[in-house]
């Protein structure tokens, strides 16, 4: 009954905040309810549906996006928490000339995806990881993606793709 009173008294639309952020390099301003998590905000308010929701309890990693350089689970973060921050999703990971990012390219080459549902989260996780770990071992890559569940590939082609992407990124950087 208490819950009911609580909900009845809530005036929908009144409880909202205006936030500004950079999504994939573009300035965005929006009005959000404080209870809306970042993934729902990205998907349903901003229409950036490349970010997927697999479990909505912070385990599967499908919803991983990059916030100010860190790979985070957008189902565990409220939209209001990205006010003033830089958010990068799978839609913004490609190179500026629209060619694929070396991680995306390597996924393609090694069949690092099947159904594609976990893929955006995998790519975002690996992008942040490889930036900080340019010379990873295979097991370090496995640890880096241990918070991203893939039911299709058995991970092996993803690991192969990540190893190759690491080499290519390093060569590009030189």
């Amino acid at each position: 009954m208490e819950l009911w009173l609580d909900l009845k008294e809530r005036k929908r639309g009144m409880n909202s905040r205006e936030i500004s952020l950079k999504l994939n390099g573009c300035e965005v301003t929006a009005t959000v309810e404080p209870r809306i998590h970042l993934a729902d905000f990205l998907r349903h308010t901003l229409g950036a549906t490349g970010t997927h929701l697999g479990c909505e309890h912070g385990v599967c990693g499908a919803c991983t996006v990059n916030v100010d350089g860190d790979a985070v689970r957008s189902c565990l973060m409220f939209a209001i928490q990205v006010d003033g921050k830089n958010v990068t999703t799978i839609e913004g990971i490609a190179n500026s000339d629209k060619t694929l990012h070396p991680i995306q390219e390597a996924f393609r080459k090694h069949h690092g995806l099947q159904c594609g549902f976990c893929t955006p989260g995998m790519v975002i996780t690996l992008e942040a990881f490889l930036k900080n770990h340019p010379n990873p071992t295979e097991f370090e890559i496995r640890k880096a993606i241990s918070g991203n569940i893939c039911r299709c590939t058995g991970y092996q082609p993803i690991v192969a793709a990540a190893m190759e992407a690491a080499t290519n990124l390093k060569n590009q950087g030189q």
Partner: peptide
């Protein structure tokens, strides 16, 4: 894969 990798699925 191209579509899926770009988040255009």
């Amino acid at each position: 894969d191209l579509r899926l990798l770009k988040g255009s699925g």
